[in-house]
């Protein structure tokens, strides 16, 4: 009985599907999409933090912080990172305090209760450049600059995508169809999903940020690499701990597995002698 009903139900599902297939025939030719044709995959970017043995290049992260602070932070917040966190980039306590104190963070005037600002403390988080999203949109042609704390984990392609985007602004190709051309306030960038990015090219000229002595020349490419490396750190500050614990656990488990395998063989071999 179950089998009889089973076959009936089975034929029901199969008929519904055949009906679906017939209903969708004939196939309309797939629309040719200009976006697909012009869109490009991210360029490759090798960072010290890549791979199973990755370590942050602290010198590079410091440069990246500098690029963020002097360029990106004009529009983008970094709300999940606090000033005390940058000690992990190799700054000492005094430097962290000085860095924090140089930033104005939102506060309340202790005398009047009115909104005010005060110099930052290490416990404070990186302040947002705008008081709220509405203000951010108003200042950016109705586009909302995303928070950058997690950006390398929140975008397909990760850090190489960010690096490609920052260095990917191009002249609009002559053969780009009209509907895909950038409108007012948009900028052609083949690495962006729909080719038209609201963000104006942020890194435009060599020396836009002045690196300290002993650092590479601040070319656009170098600055883009440095800030991408920095954003890997902001998204995954515990990366080095994670890899270290991972190797420890793996080493332990390899020994554990070899021992359990040997005892397994021994226990089952003992059975032969019965």
């Amino acid at each position: 009985m179950v089998r009889f009903f089973g076959i009936i139900v089975g034929l029901g599902f199969v008929s519904a599907l055949i009906f679906s297939i017939i209903g969708s025939l004939p196939f309309e030719a797939a629309e040719h999409s200009a976006v697909e044709e012009f869109h490009q995959e991210p360029r490759s970017l090798a960072l010290a933090s890549d791979g199973a043995f990755g370590k942050f290049d602290r010198q590079q992260l410091q440069r990246g912080l500098q690029v963020y602070s002097e360029v990106c932070s004009a529009c983008h917040s970094l709300r999940l990172v606090s000033f005390r966190d940058i000690a992990a980039l190799g700054y000492n306590e005094g430097q962290v305090k000085a860095f924090a104190a140089a930033q104005e963070v939102p506060s309340i005037d202790p005398d009047t209760g009115e909104p005010a600002t005060r110099p930052g403390l290490p416990k404070d988080y990186f302040p947002s450049p705008y008081p709220n999203d509405v203000a951010a949109r108003a200042a950016n042609n109705n586009a909302l600059p995303p928070d950058l704390s997690l950006i390398t984990k929140a975008r397909e392609g990760g850090a190489p995508y960010i690096y490609s985007l920052l260095t990917g602004y191009r002249k609009v190709p002559a053969n780009l169809p009209e509907e895909n051309r950038p409108g007012t306030g948009l900028h052609y960038n083949p690495y962006f999903a729909n080719l038209n990015l609201a963000m104006a090219p942020p890194l435009t000229s060599e020396g836009q940020v002045t690196y300290g002595p002993g650092n590479p020349k601040p070319t656009v490419d170098q600055m883009a690499k440095d800030v991408s490396a920095f954003l890997v750190w902001t998204a995954e500050p515990k990366l080095e701990n994670r890899l270290a614990v991972g190797w420890g656990a793996l080493g332990f488990l390899l020994i554990f597995t070899v021992l359990t395998y040997l005892s397994y063989r021994q226990i089952w071999a003992g059975k032969k002698e019965h």
Binding site: G10, F13, L17
Partner: peptide, 10 residues
């Protein structure tokens, strides 16, 4: 999907 149902039910 048709095969999935056909497998178990038919």
């Amino acid at each position: 999907t048709a095969y999935y149902f056909a497998h178990f039910l038919i």
